[in-house]
Amino acid sequence: MTLVDSRAAISIGPFRTVPNYITAVRTVAAVTVGIAALVAGSVLLMALSYGLYWFGDVLDGWIARRLGQETRAGAVLDIVSDRACTAVLGAGLVSLVPDVAVVAVVFLLSFLVLDTMLSLAFLCWPVLSPNYFHLVDRRVWVLNWSPLAKVVNTAGVVGAIAFGEYQLALAVAVAVVAVKLWSVAAVARLLDRKDRA
């Protein structure tokens, strides 16, 4: 039986909230600095761009929970903004460090396609965001949106690249693709069930 958060069924908005403003600002800042890094050929600016994105992404979620301003609209904005930042940062990284091109292709396709589909799947159930997907399927949540999964899925690849371990980064990216493919299949099975919420 699927358990859901009844608040989510009616909590689509509001849209003008503190965390959504933070999401908008961090996205504009990270994308702007990322493009500047790309134009200038600066690894330092690219690192700053990633820092802005990461810090803002952590901050908007923390503020949303702290102020009780989590909404489905905010979750979608956050998901879309993450993809905008990651696409710019990935393109910039490949431009600055061409040796990571294969890793970037695997990671970006996984994040921009598979993870986007998975992250937006929460909209098929009355839950506030992917952070609450454990109410639908705990295994999928543990592998994708638990605090540990959020860190490992991205930081594993980024950390290996930062240390110049491109083969390790590729191995982590391929492992993430495998997890995402399993998760997509699991969510598809949930969607096929006639008795879903």
Rank of each mutant, 00 (worst) to 15 (best):
L181E: 03
A40T: 14
L89V: 06
I79L: 04
A8F: 11
R193W: 11
T86N: 09
V113Y: 03
A162W: 05
F163P: 12
T32W: 03
L143K: 15
G90I: 01
S42M: 03
R193T: 06
K150S: 05
V106P: 00
A185P: 06
T86Q: 15
K194S: 14
G159N: 10
N144L: 11
L114M: 05
C85V: 01
A24L: 14
R26A: 10
L118C: 00
N153Y: 01
Y50E: 09
V102W: 12
A160P: 03
F107L: 07
V88T: 05
L108N: 00
G92H: 05
V152H: 03
R7V: 11
I79R: 10
L96R: 09
D57R: 11
A87D: 10
V94P: 02
A40C: 08
I161L: 01
T116Y: 08
V105L: 04
N20I: 01
C124M: 14
T86Y: 12
R83C: 00
R83F: 00
N131L: 13
F122T: 08
Q69K: 13
A171G: 12
V58H: 14
V43G: 03
K180P: 08
D5I: 09
L128E: 01
A178F: 02
A37N: 05
L123H: 10
V100M: 04
L38A: 07
V176P: 06
W182Q: 11
F122H: 07
L67Q: 14
S49V: 09
T71F: 03
L123W: 04
V80F: 06
Y50K: 11
T32C: 04
W145C: 02
R66E: 03
I22F: 02
V58G: 14
R139M: 11
T2F: 10
P14W: 09
G68T: 09
D78C: 07
W125P: 02
R83E: 00
D195K: 13
N153Q: 01
R65M: 06
S95G: 11
A169V: 07
V43L: 11
A30W: 08
V31M: 07
Y132P: 12
V103F: 02
C124D: 14
W182P: 08
R26E: 04
V179F: 00
V184Y: 00
L123Y: 08
M1L: 10
V142M: 13
G56M: 04
Y53M: 15
V97R: 15
R7F: 07
A64H: 09
V151I: 11
L148K: 12
Y132S: 15
L170K: 05
V76T: 05
V25D: 06
L114Q: 05
M46L: 14
K180L: 13
L168I: 01
Q167H: 13
P126R: 05
N131E: 13
V184K: 10
I10A: 08
P126E: 04
G92Q: 01
C85D: 00
L190T: 00
A149Y: 07
A178K: 13
F55H: 11
L120I: 03
L123P: 03
V151S: 06
